[in-house]
Each structure stands twice: as structure tokens, then as C-alpha cells.
Simulated assay, not measured.
Amino acid sequence: MTAFIYVSHPQVRIDPAIPVPDWPLTDVGRARAHAFARWAKLGAYGRIVASLEVKAQETAQIFGAALGIPVEARRDMHENDRSATGFLPEPEFQSVADAFFAQPQESVRGWERACDAQARIVAAVGAALAEQPGTPAIFVGHGGVGTLLLCHLSAAPISRAYDQPPVGGGCWFESRRPDRWRAMEEIA
């Protein structure tokens, strides 16, 4: 398999009046993305492939500008479909997210099933890699489907135990070492 890094978008401006896919990055999120984009190791990657959601596009554009690489947008890389509930206050969101991971074969409150979201993100990443075999890629997306991808790559069952650390998003993992998420600041 061609090597890749999967990066989740960092902090977003939460606005219940705006659809979740349209939320932009905060100033903190943009600053974290700019700092990560300066990591010398990213220069080894020849492609940037991102979700169509605004927060992922903004993150990918920061990386693209720093690396001089255009961003490829992919429809199937979106976060797990939560449109059935829309915005949920944080405690309620966390409760439903817990159930999403704990019951991967079931639709929790109308959300996309975790098993379906996992199949979708695995297929999207695989299809993108197959288009340019041998070209290492940076995938920019979301924490939920990123966790499902990490579980798949590490042959682990779907579980929130593999979720990002609580740093506001902005985490990454390598396909060749999908043992855990690392915060953007954890680069070596």
C-alpha cells in the first residue's frame, strides 16, 4: 500500500445556526494547521486529498499552500453522516458518539452506521491511492471517520478507545504505523 498520513481538521467555530459541514476553522485551528504544515516530513508527500467539508478544505489549503501542492476534494471523505440530528450540545453529542462507536452495526438516532462510514472512508482512501500508486498522500478529514480508518488499518474492532486525544481535533496518524492518533504538535 502506498504510504499516507491521515490528518483531522483542528478546532472549528461551532455555530448551531450553520450546518456542521460548513463550520470554518477558528484562529487557533488555523494556527495549529500552519504550524503542522511546516513539518519537514510533509515534503515527502506528493498529494493532498481532502473532504469537501469547509473545515477540512481550509486545513488542506493551508497544507497545499505550504507545500506547493494542489488539493484534491473527495465527496466520500466526509465525516459520519449526522444530519438526522444536526447540531447537538456537547454532552448529548458525546453520548451519541459513544453509542455510535459502541454499536457499529446500528444507526444511532438516525446517524450513519459506523460500519458503513468505515467502509466508505476505507474505499475512498483506497480509490485515491489506486489513482496514483506510489505517490505518498496526505488525507485531510475528520476525527470520526479517521478513527474508523485507523481501526481498519490496525485490524482493531470499531471502538472509541482508538479515538483522537481530547485536543480539539488536529491529530494525525501514519498508514505504516496506525497505532494511535498524535496531536499536530507531536511531530518528530
Rank of each mutant, 00 (worst) to 15 (best):
M1Y: 02
M1I: 08
A3E: 12
F4S: 00
F4G: 02
Y6R: 01
S8K: 00
H9T: 08
H9I: 13
H9G: 07
V12P: 01
R13W: 04
D15P: 11
D15M: 07
P16D: 06
A17W: 12
I18R: 15
P19W: 11
P19M: 13
V20L: 14
V20P: 04
W23N: 02
P24T: 07
P24Y: 01
L25P: 03
L25C: 05
T26Y: 05
G29P: 08
R32Y: 01
R32E: 09
A33N: 02
F36W: 12
F36A: 09
A37R: 12
R38F: 02
W39N: 04
W39M: 01
W39G: 00
L42W: 15
G43P: 08
A44E: 14
R47G: 01
L52P: 01
E53W: 00
E53T: 08
K55T: 06
K55S: 08
E58Y: 04
E58G: 04
Q61S: 05
F63E: 01
G64T: 03
G68F: 02
G68N: 07
V71D: 04
A73C: 12
R75L: 11
D76E: 15
D76P: 10
D76A: 13
M77D: 05
E79H: 10
E79W: 08
S83R: 15
A84W: 14
G86W: 13
F87L: 12
F87M: 10
P89T: 11
P89W: 14
P91A: 09
E92A: 10
E92H: 09
E92M: 12
F93Q: 07
A97F: 13
D98G: 11
D98Q: 15
Q103N: 14
P104E: 14
P104D: 15
Q105S: 11
E106R: 15
E106C: 10
V108Q: 14
G110M: 10
G110A: 11
G110I: 14
W111E: 05
W111Y: 12
A114H: 03
D116I: 02
A117Y: 03
I121P: 07
I121K: 05
V122M: 04
A123G: 01
V125C: 05
V125N: 03
V125H: 03
V125R: 05
V125S: 03
V125I: 10
G126I: 06
L129D: 00
A130L: 06
E131V: 12
P133H: 06
G134M: 06
A137H: 14
A137V: 10
I138K: 06
F139K: 01
H142M: 11
G143Y: 09
G144P: 00
G144H: 13
G144S: 13
G146I: 06
T147P: 09
T147Y: 02
L148H: 04
H152T: 04
L153N: 03
A155M: 05
A155V: 10
A156P: 00
P157V: 06
V167H: 05
C171D: 09
F173Y: 11
S175T: 05
S175Q: 07
R176P: 01
R176D: 15
D179I: 03
W181P: 02
R182V: 02
A183K: 03
M184G: 00
I187F: 07
